[in-house]
Design a binder for these strands. Structure first.
Lengths: 179, 179
DNA sequence: TGTTGTCGCGGAATTTAATTCGGCCACTAT
DNA sequence: ATAGTGGCCGAATTAAATTCCGCGACAACA
């Protein structure tokens, strides 16, 4: 009797551990989210409604954040991929940097440890457009320097994979970590 | 009578320019690819079959590469995001590096210009798993050094956007480019 | 300037898939 | 033991995808 008596929604944040079937489902849907529940069920040995129920649960729990089409960058005139490292004077200036997130050529903004403060992934039509973006960055208060890594070729690019991390033995020259 | 008489497939590589409606469609489907053609059509002022036809064309042309669910990295035990820069002795050693693409924790592999040769985006469960991956990298022939940028916070991360690049005036201190 | 072919669209019909429903079985905790 | 729970299946229902066909705009061409 202690369940969702608060009414409105029974969408409890189901944050359960994923089992093998869940990971299989994620593997299929990361490859192609347009498969029918019939085929999805067949691939993971479940009936269509059962597969549907699983996917619903994965969505509710947040394991599946959403579904999106993958666009060819060249098709939308953004063939040039660049990673931009930014050094800033202080951490408080990040709000100004966030304005950059409004530009459609900026795909990712990360705060990183290392000899740089921010890391941006940007796609532009050409070096001219990249220059424009960098000009905007230099005008941002707090930005002291930037380094750009222009991508020549992309050998692999894929969404987050459900696969588990491969176990690897501790290198022979290293001691077993304490924790 | 000069059309696809070669039979088999009439999937000609329709590589036409995208118009405004196509870009709107991409914008909707990048946000949420689960919308029905009825709603998609309504959002871009088209009938459901017309919207369907457009999307089919975008798929055939390759502008839409596929559809995928977006997985929460934390849900699959990969909360730690790291960008790894690799310097190599020669370019010929890349085939060896490609073996790395088999590991599920590696999401991207790029060849970049700048003071590094390769750039990897990897997601691991923890620093221990990252250490294991780096150990594997160091054992790869040709790898001379690596630098890791551990991501502390991610402020923006999204798929390729169809939005056009913002026009930006040439900075005052720069001359108009010749081409 | 008329004509013909093409292309994209809309409305209706049809097929297919998503979603709901009810009952069953295995497991758990009391 | 036993009531409760959760997940599954099969069938039924609802909703959406997909096909079909005719229309009108546009372009190439006579």
């Amino acid at each position: 009797m202690d369940e969702e008596t608060d009414g409105v929604l029974q969408n409890k944040p189901v944050a359960r551990e994923l089992d093998a079937i869940d990971r299989k489902i994620l593997g299929v849907l990361v490859d192609d989210a347009t498969v029918s529940y019939a085929e999805l069920g067949e691939r993971v040995c479940l009936s269509p409604p059962a597969a549907h129920e699983r996917v619903k649960r994965l969505r509710r729990s947040g394991a599946i954040r959403g579904t999106a089409v993958i666009i060819d960058p060249k098709a939308v005139k953004k063939p040039l991929l660049t990673f931009v490292h930014i050094d800033t004077k202080g951490w408080g200036k990040t709000p100004e940097l966030m304005a950059v997130s409004q530009y459609p050529e900026v795909e990712e903004i990360h705060s990183v440890a290392g000899d740089t403060c921010m890391l941006l992934k940007v796609r532009t039509e050409d070096t001219r457009a990249l220059e424009g973006l960098l000009a905007r960055l230099y005008e941002t208060p707090g930005v002291t320097s930037t380094r750009s890594y222009v991508v020549l070729s992309t050998y692999l690019e894929r969404p987050v994979q459900p696969g588990v991390t491969t176990e690897w033995p501790t290198p022979r020259h290293m001691a077993t970590p304490l924790y």
